[in-house]
Design a protein around this nucleic acid. Structure first.
Length: 155
DNA sequence: TATTCTTTTGGCG
DNA sequence: CGCCAAAAGAATA
């Protein structure tokens, strides 16, 4: 699989998937993945903003996203982007805000095509840390923990 | 249309 | 205090 751009971050390499000059997906890549420089100005902008975020969590993304999904997912994802920095919200809270069930939030979070930019890592379960992309333990959770710690350190 | 996936909640040892 | 089972909503094949 080829990516439109590969970015090296503190939690590993990130692969950017673009479509019509719009970001449609981000994949976590192994650290030994070869970094490919981008000639597309949009890719450069995305990489710049991502690096800025990883350097300083107090950075708001301003990127052209193409959220392909059901209206419910788009609603949830948009709500996720409105979560302030260094703030975590539980599935129950989001469900109450959207007038739906917490499990539906988890579904939308699991099918989130663009991690990091859509702060699905700020969504945690009520009792435990919750899951991340359907994984309740493993490398994904470590990245989630890193991101939360990164944002908490800023405030 | 049926299966799967997600978290929350309640009860029991 | 920790573990197990059931429930409700949505996505996917």
């Amino acid at each position: 699989m080829t990516y439109d751009g590969v970015l090296s971050t503190s939690i590993g390499h990130l692969g950017l998937l673009l479509k019509e000059n719009q970001l449609v997906g981000i994949h976590f890549l192994p650290t030994d993945f070869s970094i490919s420089e981008s000639q597309n100005p949009i890719v450069t902008k995305i990489i710049t903003q991502l690096q800025s975020y990883f350097k300083n969590a107090n950075h708001s993304f301003d990127l052209p996203l193409q959220l392909e999904g059901t209206p419910f997912q788009q609603k949830v994802w948009k709500k996720l982007t409105e979560i302030p920095m260094s703030e975590t919200r539980t599935y129950g809270e989001l469900a109450k805000a959207l007038n739906t069930a917490p499990r539906a939030i988890g579904q939308a979070c699991r099918t989130n095509p663009i991690p990091i930019i859509i702060p699905c890592h700020r969504v945690v379960a009520n009792t435990s840390l919750g899951g991340y992309s359907g994984q309740t333990q493993g490398e994904l959770l470590q990245r989630k923990k890193w991101l939360l710690q990164h944002e908490n350190a800023q405030c």
